[in-house]
Write a protein that binds this DNA or RNA. Structure first.
Lengths: 138, 138
DNA sequence: ATTATATATTCTGAATATTGAATAACCTAA
DNA sequence: TTAGGTTATTCAATATTCAGAATATATAAT
């Protein structure tokens, strides 16, 4: 199968700021439910779900249902590297053009009514992943 | 300026098989003229020029005129790494789905009538870049 | 059953991307 | 100047993507 076609499809899946930000949330917070992403990004539920659908079809994320919640995570650690390298390239190219980029890390809103294990602790400083999950990344 | 927007634009510039292949030609053969790319890829001149225009606007390539010919090259070595990593990710994801990708390396046709220094030696086995240019890559 | 919560899908018009065809612009030589 | 070779742009038809609105689905509790 044509590699350039496939590679292009992968790039297309990444070619949207909302999808990049979702992937970044999954990368930094680890597996999380839709309402968590929705809350962090401050976007409508249907919108997030649409973008997650694109990422799922592209094979970049996997989902797992647990009761009412559906948890998403990166399909593979290599996606993290892909995100890092592309972000670095974007930063370099922007800097070359005299532009400085800011990748704002949005915080979890206190008002999230979701009861999933990830969002349930949202009153704490940062309800990220466990240290075990963190060690897998590094 | 929003980093995710910028990163998305970069991905969008890469989200096309013809553009990826052009970049690959520039990466492996170094600086080359439009007719060289046109010849290798077997596409119409206007089509190549359009795609080059997109890459130029995205800041991925630079052009330099020399007489009748315009020579294009990657703006920076970091683009090479970007191509490598994204290709590897595409290969991994495809393999994960039981698909094997082939990135065919098209050869320069003998019939190129162009007289630019790069294409002028097209009757030889491979009229790539000089060893000096090659060492800069590694 | 009904209700509530979390998530997914479908439909739509607007915006943007793709690509062939035609043509314009640029440079050199005579 | 004209002619010829190389590259760029414009136009138009088609296809795709974007993002809001509405609705559908899945699960749990009552």
């Amino acid at each position: 199968m044509d590699g350039y076609e496939w590679q292009g499809s992968l790039m297309k899946a990444l070619a949207h700021p909302a999808r990049l930000q979702i992937l970044e949330v999954l990368r930094s917070d680890g597996e999380c439910c839709v309402c968590h992403i929705e809350n962090i990004m401050g976007q409508r539920q249907a919108y997030i779900s649409q973008q997650l659908s694109r990422l799922r079809e592209a094979g970049l994320v996997v989902d797992r249902r647990e009761g009412l919640n559906v948890f998403y995570s990166l399909v593979d650690e290599s996606i993290s590297q892909l995100l890092e390298v592309t972000r670095q390239s974007a930063t370099d190219l922007a800097s070359f053009n005299g532009v400085q980029l800011s990748f704002r890390q949005l915080e979890h809103e206190e008002s999230c009514p979701c009861t999933c294990p990830n969002c349930g602790v949202q009153d704490e400083a940062h309800a990220g992943r466990t240290s075990q999950e963190l060690s897998q990344v590094t």
